[in-house]
């Protein structure tokens, strides 16, 4: 099973005819993801890797049953693409696009909440339930089906860690990138809640980084809910300077908010095992799962 996505989810690709959209549509199809349609304004009536392309989401919805959308639309137009999906009843929207203005993201997330839809990202590698479905851009050969869930704010660092888990014989239930932007749809807490109810997930890896306080909020949630599944975390950016944006729009320490130290202390207090370096995660997990 895993969370949010499985082999039955039908997906549309918005921005399917762009370079990224075409490339990843091919990879997702190869992985077994059910991609039923693509949308690019002005390219309706064409096909990409056998997938029919429509000018509007409304037309795609009219012709197909659609559960989720993945967005590869350039930043200036991405928010509007997400709203188009939401207003047409798509309940899971994965926004890969980086550099969307935060004002636009805020509007999208606010609307999604009102209608009870789920936003993953922006600035995310997406979500994968290994062996079943991926809605994203991650290199899928590094994942193996298994019982560890993963939540990450970054892309390549989550690949690094997934690959190291797989090498150590630890498979994954679902891996989700919540996104590297300051404001993102799904939070650590939202995903932790889903993993708690997922019978296939026995332990969870949290990959955080400097900036904001979503990790601290997750720590409070873990304490308050007396979270029952073992957790391991790695926080990137212990040695980065304050007031500087470290690649991700969201990775910036502002005054006293957002330091790696504060996150590590909060998570430790909540009983989460802290990995000093990425390769320690597999070691810690093995110890916890055996227990």
């Amino acid at each position: 099973m895993g969370i949010i996505v499985n082999r039955d989810v039908s997906v549309i690709v918005q921005g399917i005819t762009g370079r990224q959209g075409q490339f990843h549509t091919k990879l997702m199809l190869e992985y077994g993801t059910k991609i039923v349609a693509g949308v690019t304004p002005g390219k309706g009536g064409t096909e990409v890797h056998g997938v029919p392309v429509y000018d509007t989401v409304a037309e795609a919805i009219h012709e197909h049953k659609v559960d989720a959308s993945i967005i590869f639309v350039p930043a200036p137009f991405a928010a509007s693409a997400a709203l188009e999906a939401l207003e047409n009843g798509v309940k899971i929207v994965v926004i890969i696009t980086e550099h969307i203005p935060v004002k636009d993201t805020i509007k999208v997330i606010s609307y999604a909440k009102r209608i009870g839809a789920m936003i993953i990202g922006p600035n995310t590698p997406g979500i994968i339930t290994p062996g079943e479905c991926k809605i994203g851009i991650m290199p899928h050969h590094i994942y193996e089906p298994g019982n560890v869930g993963m939540i990450s704010r970054s892309g390549t660092l989550s690949y690094e860690i997934a690959a190291s888990l797989t090498r150590s014989g630890i498979g994954q239930s679902t891996c989700i990138g919540i996104g590297g932007d300051p404001v993102v749809g799904m939070s650590f807490v939202d995903v932790l809640r889903l993993f708690r109810e997922d019978p296939r997930t026995d332990a969870i890896v949290i990959i955080g980084e400097v900036g904001g306080n979503l990790e601290e909020v997750a720590a409070e949630y873990i304490i308050k809910e007396n979270y029952s599944k073992p957790l391991v975390a790695f926080i990137a950016g212990r040695y980065v300077p304050p007031e500087k944006r470290m690649g991700h729009a969201g990775a910036i320490v502002m005054g006293r908010t957002g330091s790696a130290e504060s996150k590590i202390n909060a998570l430790k207090k909540a009983g989460v095992e802290i990995a000093q370096k990425p390769s320690d995660i597999a070691v810690l997990l093995k110890r916890l799962i055996r227990r």
Partner: peptide, 23 residues
């Protein structure tokens, strides 16, 4: 490649006694 991996690499360099010149 990737912001998170770059930050993690900086952290690991510190852990191994090095001093990064940049991100």
């Amino acid at each position: 490649n990737g912001a998170g991996l770059t930050m993690a690499t900086i952290d690991v360099v510190h852990l191994f006694g090095g001093r990064p010149a940049n991100f």
